[in-house]
């Protein structure tokens, strides 16, 4: 069935014989509405016919066609989408054709909650057989915009509801290889290692994930995404995070390089606040970053770090001052 209308040679509804029995219902905006929209004639007409069939709850193929026209004019009208779902159910429409319709709408207008909610509804009805279509569809959207919030949410829902986890970690790696700053891909990676039924959770994957992330940090130490991911790998297990030499070692390595060390310093500060005992190497590395006007600072490494950060990260100076104020006073 055709659930979509072509753009060419649009015939007004009032001139279509199949609609002759319907009396359009104009919008009741009142005598002096605020934010009145100067609708085009076509828009106003389609919505008036839509109101007529919505109010009479007409579950017919022509009603379904009309919802597609209305969505074409405004894909954000959730009432139209909602009614369309009622029609799809009542008319027992083959939902595969509906996926094509949503795909066309999504390509044109992807940052819209309604389209994605509708897509999820259709995919849920279709069940596991929709899995590959949905994974391909989100991949297509993500190839245009690799950080598309709705596409990622949809993909996560597909994995959880319909499966398809097997290749997801390598998909994340592929995206990170193309753009290691893609935080959405890091987030998806976290989603996979914590939730995939095949990987065994954070603890089982930690060793290989830490290795992967440390490499990424060393390649681009200015990348906040990889630092946050590294911390995330120890979520709920501060003791392991503080005691894993790989974490402190990567901090030390970046500090000693003396460039792009903002996240290394802030990570070291967090480690110290959680009980990490620094050896002389750490003290020397931090000491080497102090400028002459900081020389008279305390002997405390955590306070020194706050002072350095206050200087090298002025946009967050207030934050570092506050962090410093929370440190225990040195004797």
């Amino acid at each position: 069935m055709s659930s979509d209308e072509g753009e060419e040679e649009r015939v007004p509804l009032r001139a279509r014989p199949e609609w002759s029995d319907v009396t359009p219902v104009p919008q009741d905006d009142g005598p002096d509405p605020v934010v009145p929209i100067k609708y085009t004639e076509e828009f106003a007409e389609v919505m008036s016919y839509f109101r007529a069939i919505y109010l009479s709850d007409e579950r017919s193929p022509r009603a379904l066609t009309l919802t597609a026209e209305a969505i074409h004019f405004n894909a954000g009208n959730y009432t139209v989408w909602h009614f369309r779902r009622l029609l799809l159910e009542s008319l027992k429409v083959d939902l595969h054709t509906e996926l094509d319709f949503v795909e066309r709408m999504a390509i044109a207008n992807s940052k819209n909650y309604q389209i994605w909610h509708h897509r999820r509804w259709v995919a849920e009805k279709l069940g596991p057989k929709a899995r590959n279509d949905e994974l391909d569809f989100t991949k297509k959207i993500l190839s245009i915009d690799a950080k598309h919030y709705h596409a990622w949410s949809h993909r996560q829902w597909v994995l959880q509801a319909l499966g398809g986890w097997e290749d997801e970690l390598s998909y994340c790696s592929e995206l990170l290889e193309a753009d290691v700053f893609n935080n959405s891909a890091w987030n998806q990676r976290y989603f996979v290692v914590t939730r995939s039924p095949f990987l065994g959770g954070l603890e089982a994957t930690r060793e290989s994930e830490v290795l992967y992330t440390v490499q990424a940090i060393i390649a681009c130490p200015e990348n906040e995404s990889s630092w946050r991911y590294l911390r995330g790998l120890y979520k709920g297990d501060t003791t392991s995070w503080v005691n894993d030499p790989q974490v402190s070692a990567v901090c030390l390595k970046i500090l000693n390089s003396k460039s792009n060390y903002l996240f290394a310093l802030s990570t070291l500060l967090d480690l110290l606040c959680s009980g990490f005992q620094p050896n002389q190497e750490f003290r020397d590395a931090v000491e080497a970053l102090k400028t002459s006007d900081l020389d008279k600072e305390d002997q405390d490494i955590a306070r020194d770090i706050c002072s350095i950060l206050e200087h090298v990260d002025p946009i967050r100076a207030n934050y570092w001052i506050w962090r410093k104020s929370l440190l225990p006073q040195t004797a």
Binding site: V34, V35, P36, I37, K38, Y39, T40, F43, M47, F73, N74, A75, G76, N77, Y78, T79
Partner: peptide
């Protein structure tokens, strides 16, 4: 508040 052009139809909801 008193007039929005046709392009605002996408914000009709």
């Amino acid at each position: 508040l008193s007039y929005l052009p046709p392009s605002f139809s996408v914000l009709d909801a």
